[in-house]
Design a protein around this nucleic acid. Structure first.
Lengths: 233, 233
DNA sequence: CAGTGGTCTAGACCACAGG
DNA sequence: CTGTGGTCTAGACCACTGG
């Protein structure tokens, strides 16, 4: 018997990757089922399943009951961005983190915000405007609206020494969120805070988080110019 | 016996999520080990393992041998962006996809590209400049350099009817890639192709892919104004 | 209907790292 | 050294779905 032995799911995964890469199994091809592979590899089907499932989660395989497992035609690149708190982001660059509150006010938001927060147009929300710094230079601008109906405790927090970001993480549970990345042209106000030129192209993202049916907060983070958000495949 | 029965890893996961959410287990807390939980839940340890492993992969738990499992203090939001081929991106919006080649030439790239591709400064690369359209409107601009040493077959492909994107996916295997998102201010040239104003803020990303030690290609995709890249938590 | 992946079980051994 | 998670096994049943 010349069949090689694959005793760990990682080694099975490597072998499958090798075959895909060597074009033994081409994009779109049906590959053998788990039972056959487990016999060929001399391991339990569970082990094969673990390996194939991981590859399917990463988008390289497509699996369907009865239909079997195929090599993905278009390996959808799943780029996982790690959106940590800004403090961590800065500290991971070995830079000194600072936080400065610009404004904290209870106010009726623009209609676009009310719509997004699913609150009546006349309902006041807590508005936080703050700057995050790295090595004393502006790093990112935070523009946040908090639903005080869902998070009344926020009314007692000055957000002077702790960013709303960190306070919310520690104090308010949430179940879901949506993120949207886009490019923004710096307004005069934004340019002044980030110490850049009006009209500069800035990477930004909106994040809306909620807890069950309760909208918690909507935040817009705008990075200083030339900021890159990196990830690997 | 009042202990509820949890027979699937999903139900175990839901119960764990409920306890975290209800602050029965707070951020930073050590939770019971797998053996104890499996007894409490009335299921096999494997099932608990599956549930906790999934939560750890999503960043909500932190697990270490011997140290046990803790609720993450800073649940690093892992935003997974699905970077499909542009054709798929457009078609998923139920829009008509078109592709137009702007330029295809063998040329010595700028030093920045050579450095990134790890080729000598004097080595010629295949340069592809193309436009992707949605419902006949400019959607994204593609600016690509292909390492013809690693991919000689690219020299025989006109890229007139098929985008380099799709051709490479079908014909060239790769093992790794880096992606970097940023905001770009539209140059005159870019503005003309994307039918926008010079200076508009545009969302872009660079992607470098390689196969083992061979650099394959570097591409820069620049989206039309107001493009949003969305994902959920 | 039948073949495929999805999952559960009970038990076992192992690798790692905290104390 | 010892407790913890990581994994493997063999077998079983189930859920989905293609033909």
């Amino acid at each position: 018997m010349t069949a090689p032995q694959f005793q760990t799911w990682q080694s099975v995964q490597e072998e499958v990757l090798r075959r895909i890469h060597a074009r033994e199994w081409k994009p779109g091809d049906l590959i053998p089922n788990e039972a056959d592979l487990s016999r060929e590899f001399g391991c339990a089907r569970t082990t094969v399943n673990r390996a194939l499932r991981a590859l399917a989660e990463s988008g390289l395989l497509e699996r369907r009951r009865k239909a079997g497992t195929r090599v993905a035609l278009q390996p959808v690149a799943k780029a996982t961005l790690h959106i940590a708190a800004l403090r961590n982001e800065v500290e991971e660059r070995n830079q000194k983190y600072d936080y400065r509150l610009i404004e904290r006010a209870l106010a009726v938001p623009p209609p676009a915000i009310s719509t997004c927060m699913k609150t009546p147009f006349t309902t006041e929300l807590l508005h936080i405007h703050a700057l995050h710094l790295a090595d004393r230079q502006p790093y990112a601008l935070e523009n946040r609206w908090i639903n005080v109906t869902a998070v009344p405790a926020a009314l007692d927090e000055p957000f002077k020494d702790i960013s709303s970001n960190e306070w919310l993480l520690e104090n308010v549970p949430f179940t879901n969120g949506d993120i949207s990345f886009f490019a923004l042209s710096a307004s005069d106000l934004v340019a002044r805070h980030l110490a850049c030129q009006t009209g500069d192209a800035l990477l930004s993202f909106d994040r809306v988080t909620w807890d069950g049916a309760n909208m918690i907060t909507k935040v817009c983070i705008t990075y200083r110019p030339d900021h890159h958000l990196r990830t690997s495949l």
